[in-house]
């Protein structure tokens, strides 16, 4: 499939989503909006995991700093509820990037299992502050948002807010797509494949990974700002370990190194966590089952399925030819 066909499919899918949403119930609108927010988080993680080969176990930290920044500005200073919403978006992105810039100094030194562990620890640092720093974060109860911004356009309407989040999602997708297609993105893939080779070729691999880490943090911060306004409550639940692990699952389930895969994975996980949980008591069996089955049977994720089918066909064709040859002999 050519690159152009792929882009056309994605654009078509996004248009279909917009059309379907016109007929959606208010619950579905919230659900899809939430999926889009987490899709931004998952795509940010895909830059690390899928393109650079860095499995971060603490991506929820950046969602957390973005969300808490938004909540604190809104409740303590009444900032971000008018047209200053756009300033909060910028600040959220910046804080995500700055946090990642600090965390990256520690994390990028590690690799493999140690990278998993150090990102877990960094995520837990953020969680610990969110959970315990009562005067700033409201502790266990979290912070209730006073409402959504109104700058002529009232984002309190769920459909309006959906359009805003949709816009940010498309912008994030486009920006990250350009990033991974750029020479910088190509060298990230080179580092994933063989860091040693890239170093020998003269690339500063540490700096490449560090910048990728910061970019991922920035988009995580963006997701956090949107999440705060969408959910109306920012609590330590947003930064617990399972949120980070969910983000990992989204990427691995969808297909690492595809960007869009992370978005699809986000859709599936949000559906299980938020929708299925309202229907049945046993929804966690489904969630746990998806984790286990993805690892056992879907190494390339959902996006890898067409490729696997093609490979199987390609493999079976010569095999049949060979069989025919051996029979004729």
């Amino acid at each position: 499939m050519s690159e152009r066909t792929k882009i056309l499919i994605v654009v078509a899918a996004l248009i279909v989503l917009l059309i379907v949403m016109q007929f959606a119930s208010s619950f579905v609108i919230l659900l899809v909006t939430q999926a889009l927010v987490f899709a931004i988080l998952a795509m940010s993680l895909d830059i690390l995991l899928g393109y650079t080969g860095l499995p971060s176990l603490g991506q929820a930290a950046y969602l957390g700093v973005g969300a808490y920044l938004t909540a604190i500005l809104a409740t303590k200073y009444g900032f971000g509820l008018g047209s200053s919403f756009w300033a909060v978006i910028v600040l959220g992105i910046l804080l995500g990037a700055v946090t990642a810039a600090i965390f990256g100094l520690f994390a990028i030194r590690a690799s493999g299992v140690y990278f998993l562990m150090i990102t877990l620890a960094l995520g837990q640092c953020v969680w610990g502050l969110a959970y315990r720093w009562n005067s700033l974060t409201g502790g266990d109860n979290g912070i209730n948002m006073p409402g959504r911004p109104n700058f002529g356009i009232d984002l309190a309407h769920d459909m309006t807010f959906f359009y805003v989040v949709f816009g940010f999602f498309v912008a994030a997708l486009a920006a990250l797509y350009l990033l991974v297609k750029s020479p910088f993105g190509r060298s990230l893939v080179g580092i994933r494949e063989s860091e040693l080779r890239m170093r020998i070729l003269g690339y500063n691999t540490w700096l490449h990974k560090y910048i990728a880490f910061i970019i991922a943090g920035a988009f995580g911060g963006l997701a956090g700002v949107l999440w705060a306004f969408l959910n109306g409550l920012v609590s330590p639940e947003d930064v617990i370990l399972t949120t980070s692990v969910d983000a990992l699952l989204m990427v691995v389930l969808g297909g690492p190194g595809t960007l869009v895969g992370g978005a699809i994975g986000a859709g599936v996980v949000v559906f299980l966590r938020e929708y299925l949980s309202t229907l049945v008591e046993w929804w966690q069996y489904a969630l746990g089952g998806v984790y286990v089955l993805t690892i056992l049977y879907l190494p390339g994720g959902l996006m890898g399925i067409p490729e696997r089918i093609r490979q199987r066909r390609a493999l079976s064709a010569p095999a049949e030819q060979a069989k025919a040859v051996s029979v004729s002999q």
């Binding site: 499995p55 176990l57 998993l116 990992l248 966690q284 089952g289 998806v290 984790y291 286990v292």
Partner: peptide, 16 residues
């Protein structure tokens, strides 16, 4: 390590 993490988390959810 990544697949081990996700597999064991899956089991943690099942146990929960």
């Amino acid at each position: 390590p990544l697949r081990q993490v996700l597999l064991t988390v899956g089991f943690a959810f099942l146990f929960q």
